[in-house]
Amino acid sequence: MLTTKNLSYSYGTQKIEFPDISIERGSQALVLGNSGKGKTTFLHLLGGLMKIQSGSIHINGKDMAKLSKKEMDQFRGDHIGIVFQSPHFIRSISMLENLRVAASLSKTKVEDAFINSLMEKLQVTTLASKLPEQLSQGEKQRFSIARALINKPLLILADEPTSALDDENCDKVFELLSEAAKAQNASLLIVTHDGRLKSLMNHQIVLN
């Protein structure tokens, strides 16, 4: 489903080389590495948020390097869901509207019933009408998982989804993320240096 080959990225003279990975549809993996090892860069490359300099990424058989900027935007909107370390939302509209905007940006047809079931699964239904600033970090993170799942993606990428959360929320958020990915048969790749997650996932990739 997701394979990379000889992927590397240079910031000026500093070159980061990434290990080749291969992830099956519906499987889950943890990408570990200390700060400065290029975890975020790796994730952004996989998510098509930055241009591939050398090497290749194939998602669902598609060569990411060959997509135009616009095609990349569309592909990401349709097939990839991303959860960030600090969840950002459009501040002027409610959480439910935020999810609807996310749905509208993707080509995937999304019904309100699906949005509701997502919110239910993530236990945030009662917060739907709240504005982003009224939510706690943990609550926001749940919504950002809902947002990442809204386009029924093939691949979910999560960048340090738990490092800003306390232990209790960390376990809960990971569990929800993992469950939701399984429920949709989506592949899940979590990039983190959060040691708390190590014991929870078997497939681990280490960046050096």
Binding site: L49, D73, Q74, R76, L105, R147, N151
Partner: peptide, 18 residues
């Protein structure tokens, strides 16, 4: 102030034209 919102919209599939 809205650079995160804008970036997020791009992440979610919003094109530059959008």
């Amino acid at each position: 102030e809205r650079k995160y919102e804008l970036a997020i919209m791009r992440v979610m599939g919003g094109s530059q034209g959008k």
